[in-house]
Design a protein around this nucleic acid. Structure first.
Length: 455
RNA sequence: UCCCCAGUAGCUCAGUUGGCAGAGCGGGUGACUGUUAAUCACUAGGUCCGCGGUUCAAGUCCGUGCUGGGGAGCCA
């Protein structure tokens, strides 16, 4: 007989004379003459209760079963006479697939701290919370592809290994095939030049936007920053759409529409898993998400943001002046206190933004935009790209970049250049927004952070 | 990388002016004919993060290192 997934069994319309379920025991309750087992197989957050009468064989099997053990139970699916569940399995046979030593199995029938579970990241998906998390993570990834497919975007696989060592988005990890301690120079390394893990697929994506129109990348990204915060990791996933014949307003429209689509999709498709987070992790989750869906995001030019910050009576640790980059305290004030909703801040001073962002007519600001959301901060960072060859070259010279390294990038402006824009969205930060989880290490299977590379 | 806090049983934590190491939960054993993180009784369980120092005596005080957490910077 084929096993029935627990999710399917629990959704059954009718009783079943024969059923086989397999899963991990969450709890065993013994009575005189019979026992209850609750099984979870990961197909949903719910467990199915099995009741099984004691026989010598069953008792021998039960002696080897505790929390965490993997078992198979065959029997019939019947209406439960007990409270709390519609269906239960009346077991006839019990087979132990994999034992779990109760003296050493670290997961107990109680809540564990997030810190403890991080130390056993290989087992934490067996808990309700992390099982729910990783089902939602899967669904969110699928929703991203669905969203772009519906809008006729093309999915581009940009390279993980990059040869340009100055993409300007942070410290990079070196890639080499040389032995550790080797005195060989980069010319004798695998690629014959320095190579690194990508910090962004943007420059590559731009090339395909200027060919296929609307494109996106969705893949791993690496930053060798020594960041120790609940919002940063060394390896994370980023979504980077790039849209041709488009400006900064189109870019913000896309970002806002996408955030709303993804939230709606998760609320519609993961109600049981989201409920756990709304109940145990963030009591304000539902009102926060519904609030984001309800209204248009605030769109605020940087210059106006500075004026608002200067006018407010709040005592900021960092003084506000036109030309500074917004500090976390400023961003939080704008989206959590002043507007109480997601805020796009746009048209930043050119001095604090990279060379590829499009120069505005004031010659002081560039067409950049950051989307700030409550609690998480920057979830999207993007810009309209500089499509004018002469302006772009001047900006590269200002930044002291070697134009020879970017010959292919400049070619895209030399031949058939068009206005285009794009942004990067942190996939994990989106997951934090959707679930209310406060630490990015708890939305990833095996997070990579400074001084931490277990599993 | 900087600032702050923490590290005691498997987990969560208490531990007084420096004086014999504690609780709840979990585990084990037993009881119980419908339980829901079952209940009840009994029971085992410790490198007090590592190293060095002060002291008759250190979980407790001092120094240092490691690890974890929070805040900041960097950003997504």
């Amino acid at each position: 007989m084929k096993r029935t997934k627990i999710k399917i069994a629990l959704n059954s319309d009718s009783a079943m004379e024969e059923i086989l379920i397999k899963g991990w025991v969450r709890t065993k309750r013994d009575n005189k003459g019979f026992s209850f087992l609750e099984l979870n197989d990961g197909s949903s957050i719910k467990t199915i209760q099995a009741i099984i009468d004691h026989t010598p064989e069953i008792e021998a099997a039960l002696a080897r079963v505790g929390t965490g053990a993997a078992v198979a139970i065959s029997g019939e699916l019947v209406e439960s006479p007990g409270k709390g569940q519609k269906w239960e399995v009346r077991g006839k046979t019990l087979k132990v697939i994999g034992e779990a030593d109760q003296e050493t199995f670290p997961l107990q029938k109680k809540r564990h701290s997030d810190e403890f579970l991080r130390g056993i990241a290989h087992l934490r998906p067996r808990t309700n919370k992390f099982g729910a998390m990783f089902r939602i993570r899967s669904e969110l990834a699928q929703a991203i592809h669905k969203y772009f497919a519906e809008k006729d975007f093309f999915y581009i696989h940009t390279p993980i290994i990059t040869g340009s060592d100055c993409e300007g988005a942070g410290e990079m990890f070196r890639v080499t095939s040389l032995e550790a301690g080797s005195k060989e120079t980069a010319e004798n390394d695998f690629f014959g030049k320095p190579s690194h893990l990508t910090v962004s697929g943007q420059l590559s994506a731009e090339m395909f936007s200027l060919s296929l129109g609307d494109v996106y990348t969705f893949g791993p990204t690496f930053r060798a920053e020594n960041s120790n915060t609940p919002r940063h990791v060394a390896e994370f996933w980023m979504i980077e759409p790039e849209i041709a014949f488009s400006d900064l307003v189109d870019d913000m429209d896309l970002g806002e529409d996408m955030i709303k689509y993804l939230i709606t999709h998760i609320l519609d498709n993961c109600p049981d898993d989201i409920e756990l987070f709304a109940k145990w992790v963030d009591k304000t989750l539902m009102s926060t998400l519904e609030g984001i869906l309800r209204e248009p995001f605030k769109r605020l030019p940087y210059t106006e943001a500075i004026e608002i910050l200067k006018k407010t009576k709040k005592d900021f640790e960092y003084p506000v002046e036109w030309g500074i980059d917004l500090q976390t305290e400023h961003e939080r004030f704008l989206c959590e206190e002043k507007f109480k909703k997601p805020v796009f801040v746009y048209d930043y001073p050119k001095t604090i933004k990279p060379f590829y962002m499009r120069m505005n007519d004031d010659n002081k600001t560039v067409a950049a935009m950051d989307c700030l959301v409550p609690r998480i901060g920057e979830i999207i960072g993007g810009s309209q790209r500089e499509e004018r060859m002469d302006v772009l070259v001047a900006r590269m010279d200002e930044a002291g970049l070697n134009k020879d390294e970017y010959w292919w990038y400049l070619d895209s402006r030399r031949y058939g250049s068009v206005p285009h824009a794009g942004f990067g969205m942190g996939f994990e930060r989106m997951l934090m927004l959707v679930t209310g989880v406060a630490n990015i290490r708890d939305v990833m299977p095996f997070p990579r952070t400074p001084k931490s590379l277990d599993f």
